[in-house]
């Protein structure tokens, strides 16, 4: 039991860390209040459910409607994977590539309507677009099966059932680590610096020759590509996609909470924020009924976590707006060298 809980915590940690790192670049660094973060995760699901599944249906020549088609096509693929692990890994890589390309494109387009908007309206616009796409995916069953759901390939069909959870956790953690290295490399640079400058003061950045819109587009394209990878991983982990799972609470609000809790603008801080959140989330999930009956809570225990995290968000914003590990200045290697020189004098 305890070992399963740990595996679950680590798995969620990995998935949410990927999402939160990308949100941290968008919001923590660049100051873009991306209240539509959930859209990028949903795009990952679309890459797997809407595109990859369709390719499989074509490949295996499965007839009939889309939703049942996915069941047949994925089970045929799973048989292949069970006897040939390489296929599973190939599908994983393909899913990641599809998701990041689609995420990149959607992110770049998603921000365009905001060209003339100041920050306040930016957030609301992104939220509205994200919600619209979510509702369309929910009620149009032809995209990713909507509320009805579709099957996705089991990339670990070759792993015995009792180890599947751990194996998937390992994959997710490995990818999350790569994403962390990517962002550290990408952001401890003049790019990270100009994003922070944009967050601090757009007029100054404009007066010094930068095109704010281009910076926003690049940021959202990269952020959404990474968010989509998390969405793809999640869709592959659960071996099916139900549109209901991609709500703004789960994939926008909670990632904001993790970034704010850990420390916006600090990738290590965000790891701590994600970990805190995930531990509480998993424990609440596992013990929700025990809690409900021992504490005699007169409502659905799911609400408990929403309320708890809502209050937590307010407390952080009020008492510790810079989070558990505050942002550090970006010190590039030449800056470091020069600072050493000066302090040696």
């Amino acid at each position: 039991m305890i070992i399963e809980i740990i595996s679950l915590i680590l798995l969620w940690f990995g998935i949410y860390y990927i999402v939160s790192l990308s949100l941290n670049m968008e919001f923590g660094y660049a100051g873009i209040p991306n209240f539509g973060k959930a859209l990028s995760v949903l795009v990952g699901a679309i890459a797997v459910g809407g595109i990859l599944d369709r390719l499989l249906i074509l490949y295996f020549g499965v007839g009939g409607d889309f939703i049942t088609g996915t069941t047949y096509a994925t089970s045929m693929l799973n048989d292949l994977i069970a006897s040939n692990p390489i296929v599973g890994i190939g599908i994983l890589i393909l899913a990641i590539i599809l998701a990041s390309i689609l995420g990149f494109i959607v992110g770049a387009i998603f921000i365009l309507p905001s060209a003339k908007l100041k920050e306040d309206y930016l957030g609301v616009t992104l939220l509205a677009i994200s919600e619209a796409v979510f509702l369309i995916c929910m009620y149009n069953l032809n995209i990713i099966g909507g509320y009805y759901g579709i099957s996705t390939p089991d990339i670990l069909a070759f792993v015995p059932g009792e180890y599947r959870g751990w194996a998937f956790t390992g994959i997710v953690l490995f990818i999350a680590f790569l994403v962390y290295l990517f962002f550290e490399r990408l952001l401890n640079t003049p790019f990270g610096r100009v994003l922070r400058a944009m967050r601090e003061n757009e007029d100054t950045v404009k007066a010094f020759g930068r095109d704010i819109m281009m910076l926003r587009i690049k940021t959202m394209a990269i952020g959404s590509a990474i968010g989509a990878i998390a969405g793809a991983l999640y869709s592959l982990y659960t071996v099916n996609i139900i549109a209901n799972a991609f709500t703004r609470v789960e994939w926008t609000f909670f990632p904001f909470l993790m970034v704010l809790l850990g420390g916006k603008g600090n990738n290590k801080g965000v790891a701590l924020g994600v970990l805190c959140y995930v531990v509480v989330k998993v424990l609440l999930d596992v013990y929700k009924y025990n809690l409900k009956y021992t504490l005699n809570i007169p409502f659905e225990p799911v609400w408990l976590s929403y309320m708890l995290f809502g209050v937590l968000m307010l407390l952080i914003l009020y008492y510790k707006p810079s989070g558990l590990i505050p942002e550090k200045p970006i010190i590039t290697p030449p800056m470091k060298k020069k600072i050493m020189e000066i302090s040696n004098k």
């Binding site: 952001l187 003049p190 790019f191 610096r193 100009v194 922070r196 601090e200 003061n201 020759g209 200045p329």
Partner: peptide, 25 residues
């Protein structure tokens, strides 16, 4: 001023570095 950034960072924003393009970074 870029308030949350250091004085040095504030100056460095005065000039454009090729590393501001994500791919170069």
């Amino acid at each position: 001023p870029l308030k949350e950034m250091t004085v040095l960072e504030n100056l460095l924003i005065g000039e454009i570095n090729p590393g501001e393009r994500p791919l170069n970074a």
